[in-house]
Simulated assay, not measured.
Amino acid sequence: MFNFTIFKLGISSHFGLYNLPFNLEEYMVNCPMFHLNVVTGFSMEMMELLMQGEIDVAIVKDSYFSPFRLYRQTPEKSVCLQFF
């Protein structure tokens, strides 16, 4: 029997297409006990899933020219953790 944690990640489609593949291999090697459940879509959809508790973290853009932002839902609000 395996003991692992499922981490639900919501990301914008653009980030998922162009950035995620390069980072996913390193993540899987360094974090073998965490399994990713990745959902992609529009940034607004990812923020809605985050606020509803359907995903653990959202990586989204506010606009086409803004940097990507990493959000985590707290009991009070969504908190931006990092820009990249």
Score class of each variant (00 low, 15 high):
residue 1 M to Q: 08
residue 1 M to N: 11
residue 2 F to H: 09
residue 3 N to I: 05
residue 3 N to K: 11
residue 3 N to M: 09
residue 4 F to G: 10
residue 4 F to V: 06
residue 5 T to E: 14
residue 5 T to Y: 01
residue 7 F to E: 12
residue 8 K to T: 00
residue 10 G to I: 13
residue 10 G to L: 05
residue 10 G to E: 01
residue 11 I to N: 00
residue 12 S to P: 03
residue 13 S to M: 10
residue 13 S to C: 07
residue 14 H to P: 01
residue 14 H to F: 09
residue 14 H to W: 04
residue 15 F to M: 10
residue 15 F to W: 14
residue 16 G to K: 13
residue 16 G to L: 09
residue 17 L to M: 09
residue 18 Y to Q: 12
residue 18 Y to G: 00
residue 19 N to P: 01
residue 19 N to F: 11
residue 20 L to F: 15
residue 22 F to V: 02
residue 22 F to I: 05
residue 22 F to Q: 12
residue 23 N to A: 13
residue 24 L to T: 10
residue 26 E to H: 08
residue 26 E to V: 08
residue 29 V to Y: 10
residue 29 V to I: 14
residue 30 N to Q: 14
residue 30 N to E: 08
residue 30 N to K: 13
residue 33 M to P: 00
residue 33 M to N: 05
residue 34 F to D: 12
residue 35 H to I: 01
residue 36 L to M: 11
residue 37 N to D: 04
residue 37 N to W: 02
residue 37 N to V: 06
residue 37 N to P: 00
residue 38 V to Y: 01
residue 39 V to F: 06
residue 39 V to A: 02
residue 40 T to H: 05
residue 41 G to M: 09
residue 41 G to A: 11
residue 42 F to G: 15
residue 42 F to D: 15
residue 42 F to R: 13
residue 42 F to Q: 14
residue 43 S to N: 03
residue 44 M to E: 15
residue 44 M to A: 11
residue 45 E to I: 04
residue 47 M to W: 00
residue 47 M to H: 03
residue 50 L to M: 04
residue 51 M to P: 00
residue 52 Q to E: 15
residue 53 G to H: 10
residue 53 G to E: 13
residue 56 D to C: 01
residue 56 D to S: 12
residue 57 V to C: 11
residue 58 A to Q: 01
residue 60 V to W: 07
residue 62 D to A: 12
residue 62 D to L: 05
residue 62 D to M: 09
residue 63 S to V: 03
residue 63 S to M: 08
residue 63 S to Q: 11
residue 63 S to C: 10
residue 63 S to Y: 04
residue 64 Y to D: 04
residue 64 Y to S: 06
residue 65 F to K: 14
residue 66 S to I: 04
residue 67 P to S: 07
residue 67 P to D: 14
residue 67 P to Y: 00
residue 68 F to R: 02
residue 68 F to W: 14
residue 68 F to Q: 00
residue 69 R to W: 06
residue 69 R to I: 08
residue 70 L to A: 05
residue 72 R to E: 07
residue 73 Q to S: 08
residue 73 Q to G: 12
residue 74 T to W: 05
residue 74 T to V: 15
residue 75 P to L: 02
residue 76 E to Y: 12
residue 76 E to G: 01
residue 77 K to S: 07
residue 77 K to H: 12
residue 79 V to L: 13
residue 79 V to M: 10
residue 80 C to M: 15
residue 80 C to L: 14
residue 81 L to I: 11
residue 82 Q to G: 03
residue 82 Q to A: 13
residue 83 F to E: 11
residue 83 F to R: 07
residue 84 F to T: 02
